[in-house]
Amino acid sequence: MTGLSLPEEIVLLTLDDATGRAIGRQGIAASIALAGAVMMELALAGRVDTDRHRLEVLDDSPTGDPVLDTGLPLLREASDSRGALMLLAREETGLRPLVLSALLARGLLHRVDGRVLLVFPERRYLKPEDRPEPREVRARLLRSIETDDIPEPREALLLGLARATALLPLLLPPELLAARQERIMLLNRIEALNRSVSETVGDLYLYRLRSV
């Protein structure tokens, strides 16, 4: 157990270890993966009940987590899980800074402001060399695929999100992915929550990708 929430783990995964820039095509993968992570964390907290087609808010009282407390009220406006994910993905510009602020406050990221081509402002988030936690997220993801051990539920959920948004090819060696496809599919089916949210995340990701 890392003490990190699923939204925090997704943000760490979607930041390139070397450059501190977001990975994934035009940020689509990162935004939809974050939306799915928020929904999964709310489900784990008992605040929502969801499957591939349905979403019900069970408890909308504050959780104490700024990210979840920003996302939860949005779900009152959704009629189904896909609509909820779309609302959360649209709010990514509000949710992501909250996650980054929490990671910065804990010393798990270091902000670097600079310029591209000496003209365009750019902000990057580097993973400190003296803190293992940010890189351990990817290492755990790798171990869950390489071994035949039953993973922790959160590891299976994280893998499901990374697979659904096509992040795995950006994070892991292609030869490993090719050799362990059966294992990846098995892990994606272990948790009912993983199956429902990951499938919906995957549908939305493909829809957004075709719209670009």
Rank of each mutant, 00 (worst) to 15 (best):
A179G: 04
P66L: 00
V119S: 12
T165V: 14
G71T: 04
P73V: 01
P169M: 11
M86P: 01
I150L: 15
E146F: 07
R21Q: 15
M40T: 10
A102C: 07
Q26R: 15
R96N: 10
H53T: 12
P7H: 04
G24Q: 03
L118K: 14
A89V: 11
G20N: 03
R180Q: 06
E199L: 14
M86K: 13
L15V: 10
S144V: 15
L6D: 00
E136V: 07
R90I: 01
P66G: 02
I145F: 09
L72H: 06
A78E: 00
A33G: 15
L158N: 08
T93Q: 12
V212L: 15
R131L: 00
G94P: 04
R189C: 08
I145E: 09
M86E: 15
R25P: 01
D149H: 08
E133M: 00
L15W: 03
P73G: 12
L103V: 00
L171C: 01
E136C: 00
I184G: 09
I190N: 04
R183S: 05
M40Y: 09
T63H: 12
L141E: 02
L44A: 14
I28E: 10
R54S: 13
M185V: 13
E199F: 08
L172D: 01
M39R: 12
L100N: 04
G71M: 04
T147H: 07
L206D: 13
V48W: 00
L161W: 06
A105E: 10
I28A: 06
L87W: 02
L74T: 08
Y207Q: 14
S5D: 03
L4D: 06
G46D: 00
K127W: 09
D59F: 00
A162V: 05
R115V: 14
D130L: 00
E56L: 08
L172F: 06
D130W: 01
L68V: 04
L168M: 05
G71I: 04
V212Q: 08
G46N: 02
L167A: 03
E152A: 15
T2I: 10
R76N: 08
A35M: 09
V99S: 03
L100C: 07
R140E: 08
Q181M: 13
